[in-house]
Amino acid sequence: MPATDQIAQKVIAVITETLHAKGKTDTDVSLDSPVDRRLGLDSLDWATVVVRLEEETGVDPFQEGLSRELNTIADLVELYAAAAG
């Protein structure tokens, strides 16, 4: 499986688990899903997602701040894929 696909799987899995932990079990998470409040995650949830993804991927692309806009989960996957090299 290409590396980007693996990262996409991990990103979707971690976000889904985080939503389930909040009781949001009927949200369908895909690469097209928005990363704003419509997804149902607040700032603490996103902070948790980033920590979990660092554990899964070994990288945290937000350490130096964010220089690009993120609109969808696909953008997030691209960010992690670039950080992972």
Binding site: S43, L44, W46, A47, T48, V50, V51, D60, F62, Q63
Partner: peptide, 8 residues
């Protein structure tokens, strides 16, 4: 440590 909120 959290790069988003400082600490969790």
């Amino acid at each position: 440590r959290s790069s988003i909120v400082g600490q969790l």
